[in-house]
Design a binder for these strands. Sequence first.
DNA 1: CGCCTATTTGAAAACCGTCAAAGTATGTGG
DNA 2: CCACATACTTTGACGGTTTTCAAATAGGCG
Lengths: 226, 226
Amino acid sequence: MTLDERIALLGQSITFSSLTEEEMVELAGLCRIRSLNAGEYVFMEGEEPDWLYMVAEGRVKVLKHSSQGKEFIISFFGPGEMFGEVAIFQNRPYPASAQAVSELKVIAIKRDDFHTFLRNRPETVFRMIHVLSGRLRDAQVRLRDLAAERVEQRLARVLIMLASRLGPVLPFTRQEIADMVGTTPETTIRLMSKLKEAGIIASSRGRTEIVDEARLRELSEGLQPM
Amino acid sequence: MTLDERIALLGQSITFSSLTEEEMVELAGLCRIRSLNAGEYVFMEGEEPDWLYMVAEGRVKVLKHSSQGKEFIISFFGPGEMFGEVAIFQNRPYPASAQAVSELKVIAIKRDDFHTFLRNRPETVFRMIHVLSGRLRDAQVRLRDLAAERVEQRLARVLIMLASRLGPVLPFTRQEIADMVGTTPETTIRLMSKLKEAGIIASSRGRTEIVDEARLRELSEGLQPM
DNA sequence: CGCCTATTTGAAAACCGTCAAAGTATGTGG
DNA sequence: CCACATACTTTGACGGTTTTCAAATAGGCG
């Protein structure tokens, strides 16, 4: 992959889009590209944090396993989005695993190189703080939801959240949705079947489309249980 | 409150303890002090983020309300700890409310003043990133726990987490613990009564002491249900 | 077609929340 | 010092939501 291609990929990122031409060249020079097949892990929870990653092509899911081996999906990331940054900034093991969902290309930057690069780029540092703050905000909303809302509302909220990031057509299996909502595939299926009957969503194998977002929003507020 | 007193308070914070004498003086000059009684709110979810706060004396709890009005406690903060920073960095409304648990004194710094102060303090900025990263890491652990662990294990983990920050004697009511675990006071009482009988904790009104942390850890792993 | 994976459905049980009521500590004012 | 108010704690019974287990069906791909 050429330098120009790497620069183009970096430009997809909100964090780096403000860099000057020279800075882009410098950063691109620090990058490695890794290609992975679906199911392969970019890193595993507990590994030493040597690299910061950004998605170039495809999607990655960041997840944690429970004590009984069930997995919880913390987030999906697509092109231009960064992951692994918590470990990098704390210089402690990755707190979660990152797994390729589809064919995946990621840009990897060595921890020390990145820290050096940031040293005199306050603008970039503030953008990273902005990203971290946004993730913390999202995490707090989900914490509250998991602690206090029932599955039906959590499901509605996850679907809304995904639709706001990816558009109305969502490429996820029932299992993946269940792992984001924090429930079982069976419960997800039962609830989504009701949503389907009510004409709120349409869905087939590994694909869900939000048809009536307004009603989904009502459900997510718990105003009127189905 | 004198400038020197404010400087002493700022020095309690990990984030600011690395500042030079002059920087401390400058920052202390930007601070206001607010005193609140137990139960009063420092800020409410949804308000405009004009101030960054740090606890000077007492404790504050940061919480969100569910759609049914139940509250979920995101975190407690004590002297030297910062809160409200997510809103400040994003310049969006506070994502949660902050309420005084006891008599409380907080240091408040105006958003714009703080941003100006940070502009040429890369060291301080990196410390803030470190704090944010740690909170995100903690949030991810709790997300996984809420999504995949049963109440008994979540309770054990919350107690362990609190003990690691505050020592073995915890000044919380059953209600507060329930609001951190994401359950009801009744369930909390039932489980804690069992922990008491088993000699794992001792507790009285508004106070819980971890006696046998090793066994609590076993419970938190779900190795042997009680 | 045949295999693999995803989806669906059913029945039973576990977990936990809700509701109601009573008991117990803490502090306040008379 | 006692009576009372208040808030926290405890207990029991019940019911609903959700998980678990099991089995069957359906869709996609070589």
